[in-house]
């Protein structure tokens, strides 16, 4: 058994265990932390496949940015074990049976696939140089469209997250007081 195989099985076991812990831990913050572990193991798989660019992007974008966003939202909402909504035991069991059936059916369907090998630890298609060349020649239009997508997503998030019920959030007297102040100072449109 070569070192690559040992690493593959180790990373696979680690990613499956941490993925199971994501859905089974009661505390939402622990779920986020286990999901970060899962993403790091998936990055390890990318490195084993010599897709180094994707490994780095996975760590930066997923384990870095997205998971920090999740952690930030969970801490903002002050969620903990006590506020965690729970399904009844029967519904949980039904969900587990449904997920297990999906696993079983997919494994049974793909059990007799053609025997093919993947290349491990060599081949330079996953390096930044090659991917960058293809990205900025053949795929430059999708790349630019992605920037527009980001811009619209950012605007969308700001518009959705904006507090539009300003009047109900601020006490009535305070608004009257602000209006009176503005009138006293002669600011129009108060």
């Amino acid at each position: 058994m070569s070192i690559t195989e040992i690493l593959f099985w180790l990373l696979s076991a680690l990613s499956l265990i941490s993925a199971i812990l994501v859905i089974s831990s009661r505390h939402p913050v622990y779920s986020v932390l286990w999901l970060i572990v899962t993403f790091f193991t998936i990055s390890g798989h990318y490195i084993l496949l010599n897709a180094q660019f994707l490994a780095v992007v996975n760590v930066i974008v997923y384990a870095g940015a997205i998971m920090v966003l999740f952690l930030f939202v969970i801490m903002l909402m002050n969620l903990n074990k006590d506020t965690e909504p729970q399904k009844s035991r029967w519904l949980k069991m039904a969900g587990a049976v449904a997920g297990g059936s999906l696993l079983l059916i997919m494994v049974a369907a793909l059990r007799t696939t053609e025997k093919q090998m993947t290349e491990m630890g060599s081949g330079d298609i996953g390096l930044i140089e090659n991917l960058g060349k293809v990205l900025f020649t053949d795929y430059v239009v999708p790349f630019e469209i992605a920037s527009i997508l980001f811009l619209s997503a950012m605007i969308g998030a700001v518009v959705i997250g904006k507090r539009d019920d300003y009047a109900s959030a601020v006490p009535k007297e305070e608004i009257e007081e602000m209006k009176a102040n503005r009138e006293a100072m002669g600011i129009p449109g108060a």
Binding site: I23, Q86, K87, G95, A96, A98, G99, G100, M106
Partner: peptide, 14 residues
């Protein structure tokens, strides 16, 4: 991993 994700969607309420 996909099946674990599906199970999580079906069993959690958060």
């Amino acid at each position: 991993l996909f099946a674990i994700g599906v199970t999580g969607v079906l069993t959690r309420r958060n």
